[in-house]
């Protein structure tokens, strides 16, 4: 089922067999993702601490925490529809995760055209997500939200929103670039010549991680 990479693995690892029967590259990707989890957790926990130090939402108090249903209530061409646009964004990211798994599965079968097809869908999903986020940012900036103030309530809300969704959007953008590079490499037959599609698997881990982080960004900003 799994073509374990042997390219220079011994040189890099110097430890004989791969521990846990997982290749060098995948373990390193997991290491990176664990450290990245702590970065995001640091940001989200700061968000939690700052938010709990503000009064709960109260329309009469401009220092209270904003109600997400009132902040995120518009999309391209519609408004007064709370959370609808972010639902679309969330579904887009879930679907692009699914197409990524399909690309990994086609890679296991060494099916180049299958990998190309599903990678194309994954990249498209990533682009739609980043584009949607760009729309949402510019909409909120138009409404008067800045890192040091906003018309909805507590001023730290804007700073935390731009910082955390920005950092997540940056991850998605990097993912789209890496996936595009992998798409081109697949098209040029690099992985066929290498004898395995492990690169797609590693990028898959990264891409699912971005989806996983979104679950918590979504929870913190849009649901709570």
């Amino acid at each position: 089922m799994e073509a374990v990479a042997t390219t220079n693995a011994k040189d890099l690892w110097s430890g004989g067999d791969s521990p846990f029967k997982v290749s060098y590259g995948k373990i390193m990707m997991w290491y990176f993702l664990i450290s990245d989890t702590f970065t995001f957790a640091g940001l989200l926990i700061s968000y939690g601490a700052i938010r709990t130090s503000q009064p709960k939402h109260d329309a009469a108090n401009p220092l209270s925490w904003p109600d997400p249903n009132e902040v995120f209530n518009a999309g391209p061409g519609f408004h007064n529809a709370p959370l609808i646009f972010v639902t679309f964004m969330t579904f887009t990211l879930i679907l692009s995760s699914v197409t990524m798994v399909r690309a990994v599965q086609e890679g296991h079968q060494m099916n180049r055209s299958g990998v190309l097809k599903w990678m194309a869908f994954t990249i498209l999903g990533g682009l739609v997500f980043v584009g949607s986020q760009a729309w949402e940012w510019s909409h909120l900036i138009e409404e008067g939200m800045t890192p040091h103030g906003n018309p909805f309530g507590a001023s730290s809300f804007g700073a935390l929103f731009f910082l955390i969704t920005g950092f997540h959007g940056f991850h998605v953008s990097v993912g789209v670039l890496l996936n595009s590079w992998a798409f081109i490499s697949t098209y040029r037959g690099v992985f066929d010549r290498r004898g395995h599609y492990e690169m797609i698997e590693k990028l898959g881990l990264y891409w699912h991680f971005v989806d996983l982080v979104w679950v918590y960004v979504f929870l913190a900003f849009y649901l709570f």
């Binding site: 798994v101 898959g204 996983l212 709570f224």
Partner: peptide, 17 residues
């Protein structure tokens, strides 16, 4: 919401990853 998000995280990590 916390419980449902944990469920989503479980499925993403166990199956997708």
């Amino acid at each position: 919401f916390v419980v449902l998000s944990a469920a989503k995280a479980y499925y993403i990590m166990s199956e997708f990853m």
